[in-house]
Design a protein around this nucleic acid. Structure first.
Lengths: 160, 160
DNA sequence: GAATTTACCGAATTATATGCGGTGCAAATT
DNA sequence: AATTTGCACCGCATATAATTCGGTAAATTC
């Protein structure tokens, strides 16, 4: 198991990462200007960051409301048991529900926290009743409806 | 105040949005093949989606552990009061803390839920003690540490 | 301090995005 | 039903950007 692969990156790489997190569509030419290198080594650095897995992927961020997704929620889910088989079965079901865009195993109040996005309250309720609560490993559920989102940064604070 | 601008998009646009959410780095040529159009109208559609605000921005997704960010948490925050001034003051402070990457106003258990990412438990504790709990509008805090993340999809389920 | 590796630059090449004129289809108008 | 109008599309030409390559300087190793 080779997780935790330590990867090295310097001050310039950090700046590249900050810029690409905030704006992945920047041209290599502009990026090179911003970091004070010429295009060639800039591109080289970006490729290395991608190959090393520091940069995992690139994504377009959409406006949920403009595509008809008006309701976002967090749901605390308690499972009936905590054994590996149960958790894996739960995950397998969750994976197939596209409205569940995040699923984290947590300490504290619940066992899992989900982030769910759906059209409206009605379709949210339907989703919860017909899909999530139907998963047999699910014991308890507690919903927190997002009234408004004040901050949704895609930029991680890279430690010095 | 023109929020909630209804924007139209068809089946082809939907496919474009799905693809760009999953992979923003795809070339226009490849995207055009995937959706079955030639490059010119494909690009036209993407530009329109950007101009209409359906596509808000593009971001690189990093591997938190590889950049030394080992601890992610959700924090339920209760405020001392719910009036507008209080909430705004709270938000202003939260905005300045780069480790807080999300902040949502919610119904249910707490008033707000934050997503926080930091180096380790020590720096997390420091952050909470010295920054978050120092905000005078903050009354209660309840932390949920993420043990592992099973799903973190950047693809929203676009309603039909 | 010599050898080796690494990171950089500038310029040529290749790939990609972009702009434009023309065409066909669908919907609206008469 | 025929005509008109307006889109959305295509192919091609052009512009822009990414990528490759050979050479050089700086940093690292021995």
């Amino acid at each position: 198991m080779d997780n935790y692969v330590k990867v090295k990156f310097d001050k310039i790489d950090r700046k590249i990462l900050e810029i690409l997190q905030a704006n992945a569509k920047i041209t290599n030419a502009q990026l090179s200007k911003d970091i004070g290198l010429s295009p060639a080594p800039t591109l080289e650095r970006v490729k290395k960051l991608e190959q090393s897995g520091i940069i995992k992927s690139y994504h377009a961020k959409l406006d949920p409301e403009k595509i008809g997704l008006g309701v976002s929620t967090f749901v605390l889910v308690g499972l009936v048991g905590h054994n590996k088989a149960n958790i894996e079965a739960f995950m397998k079901e969750i994976d197939q529900i596209s409205e569940v865009i995040e699923c984290h195993h947590i300490t504290g109040t619940g066992d899992f926290i989900l982030k769910i996005i759906s059209k409206d309250i009605t379709s949210y309720q339907k989703l919860m009743l017909e899909k999530v609560s139907e998963i047999k490993e699910v014991d308890s559920m507690q919903s927190m409806v997002i009234l408004s989102t004040f901050k949704d940064s895609k930029v991680l604070p890279i430690p010095a």
